[in-house]
């Protein structure tokens, strides 16, 4: 299982870096989404998870010292929530770019904007 997760993380990282290197901003967005998910999987894979162990132990003197480690899940949950916020912002940014500049290609975007040094009115 862990070997499988490791391979999955590796493949997802590769795919997302390929997507991040693209000029098309929608693909870049997908790349960020995917790299976020693969990091969550990474925390899951190497985060000292324990199987079949209780999360809470009623009796503090119980002989079983094995109990579930809840921290990786908490970390992943936090990362997912933050990821949602960032994703929403980026999605709106790209939508805005599409509405205003009619392109999601970053190279073309540069030419549709005016030179920043000439931002004041000349006459």
């Amino acid at each position: 299982m862990e070997i499988l997760l490791c391979w999955l993380v590796g493949v997802l990282f590769t795919v997302s870096i390929y997507l991040l290197l693209n000029k098309n901003l929608v693909r870049v967005l997908f790349g960020i989404m995917l790299i976020g998910s693969s990091i969550n999987l990474l925390i899951f894979a190497i985060g000292h998870l324990t199987y079949n162990a209780p999360a809470f132990i009623n009796n503090p003197n119980s002989p079983s010292t094995q109990f579930a480690n809840a921290l990786p899940q908490a970390l992943i949950l936090t990362a997912i929530v933050i990821g949602f916020g960032v994703m929403t912002f980026s999605l709106i940014l790209i939508t805005k770019a599409w509405q205003e500049l009619n392109t999601v290609d970053e190279d073309k975007m540069r030419f549709t904007e005016k030179n920043p040094s000439l931002d004041q009115v000349e006459s």
Binding site: L20, I32, I43, G47, H48, L93, R110, P116
Partner: peptide
């Protein structure tokens, strides 16, 4: 100025994701 915002947001997002990766390994 979308170009500046896009560069800023994508590169900084990647930086925080790298930070998260490093934290995951260190926790591991």
């Amino acid at each position: 100025h979308l170009e500046g915002i896009v560069k800023y947001s994508v590169l900084n997002l990647i930086a925080t994701l790298f930070l998260l990766t490093a934290i995951a390994f260190l926790y591991g």
